[in-house]
């Protein structure tokens, strides 16, 4: 399934880049993200809890950043599992930033996700809608973090 969304952040492109490529900053914005562990400069692990009605599950994924062109583009590969290996997930993702003006940046992300296993039996249509609503929640939290107090608090503690 292919997902492509974009949102605008009221911050200069360099600042947005700095935040969005930092797992420690992104993790707390990700809905259901329970843990994020940085393994190296381009690899990290994440544990994300997702509920869809009666189905409640945890995704454990490894993310590897395969390409970076600051402050505009990044590509990553995600591999992982869900529900004690009941499903396998993989995704090829890209992230593109575009400066709309000095203080506004457009963030576009695209992901080609595949799910094999028990969740594959479940309708992909609804999963796609779920991913979209998680994306919207992420954008909202990310904006607050970069634009507002969240950012200052994060910087102070860094």
């Amino acid at each position: 399934m292919k997902i492509e969304e974009s949102f605008t952040v009221q911050a200069p492109i360099d600042r947005v880049w700095e935040f969005i490529t930092d797992p420690e900053q992104v993790g707390p914005c990700l809905p259901g993200c329970e843990e994020i562990e940085v393994l190296g400069p381009t690899t990290y692990k994440a544990r994300i809890k997702v509920a869809l009605g009666p189905i409640k599950t945890t995704f454990k994924v490894d993310v590897e950043v395969t390409e970076e062109r600051p402050p505009e583009f990044a590509a990553s590969v995600t591999r992982g599992e869900e529900g004690g290996k009941a499903s396998r997930v993989s995704a090829d993702s890209t992230l593109a930033l575009k400066a709309l003006d000095e203080s506004q940046t457009e963030v576009t992300y695209a992901s080609d996700v595949s799910v094999v296993g028990r969740l594959g039996k479940f309708g992909l249509g609804i999963m796609k809608k779920k991913a979209k609503s998680m994306g919207e929640e992420f954008a909202a939290k990310f904006r607050v973090r970069v634009e507002g107090d969240g950012a200052r608090a994060a910087e102070a503690s860094a």
């Binding site: 009666p54 189905i55 969740l119 039996k121 479940f122």
Partner: peptide, 19 residues
């Protein structure tokens, strides 16, 4: 605890290891 009514959907989901 989870209620089960006619079971048609819940048991199918249990069979599919979704719930």
């Amino acid at each position: 605890a989870r209620c089960i009514a006619g079971g048609a959907t819940l048991v199918a989901m249990m069979n599919a290891d979704l719930v």
